[in-house]
């Protein structure tokens, strides 16, 4: 990503969807899109890859269930054999509820913390809002001015076709955060 981006503001979600689709089809790189609420179909218009978060969730769940089964087995029938109600040692049914809970807990926490880490979110982080109105009634598309061949005028013209309210250039800070 270069340090210059083009910001296009829209009033309607349909315009944003159509513009995003057109910009992507024309071969430009979309940095991000900001909307006041979840817009259905935007991930397809932006050409986003399927989320990898589901794999994080699945792996954490498997670690939870297998890890807990092993721990219960180890703690009740290897390290210190426990006789509970005359049941045989290493009784699988009694291990299942805790293993299930551990799977749910780790899958849930794993997904949340993985998302926070990938999004670089942490307590006390200063919000960087490009335009406060994206939290209210405006839709914003951020396009990367990838190289010298980027024809700002042509892109501007294309965006006008989708009723862009404003198209402006911004310079990004080191680390990719928007100024």
């Amino acid at each position: 990503m270069s340090d210059r981006v083009l910001l296009a503001t829209f009033e309607h979600e349909d315009d944003l969807l159509a513009a995003t689709d057109a910009v992507r089809r024309s071969g430009f790189k979309i940095v991000d899109a900001f909307t006041p609420y979840a817009v259905h179909g935007l991930e397809r218009a932006m050409g986003l890859r399927p989320s990898r978060l589901t794999w994080v969730c699945f792996l954490c769940g498997m670690i939870g269930v297998l890890g807990m089964l092993w721990f219960e087995h180890w703690s009740t029938s290897i390290d210190w054999k426990l006789d509970v109600g005359g049941k045989p040692w290493n009784s699988l049914p009694s291990d299942v509820p805790v293993a299930f809970e551990a799977a749910v807990l780790l899958a849930g926490f794993g997904s949340v913390f993985a998302l926070l880490a990938v999004s670089r979110l942490f307590p006390g982080k200063q919000p960087q809002i490009i335009n406060p109105r994206v939290t209210d009634d405006r839709f914003l598309l951020v396009i990367d001015e990838a190289d010298a061949g980027f024809d700002t005028a042509a892109v501007r013209k294309m965006l006008q076709e989708f009723h862009a309210l404003a198209v402006e250039e911004k310079i990004t800070l080191p680390g990719g955060d928007l100024q």
């Binding site: 049914p93 009694s94 299942v96 509820p97």
Partner: peptide
């Protein structure tokens, strides 16, 4: 299914 099975197995 498991809830029914486990309660019966456990109380025996």
């Amino acid at each position: 299914w498991f809830s029914q099975y486990m309660l019966i197995w456990y109380s025996n």
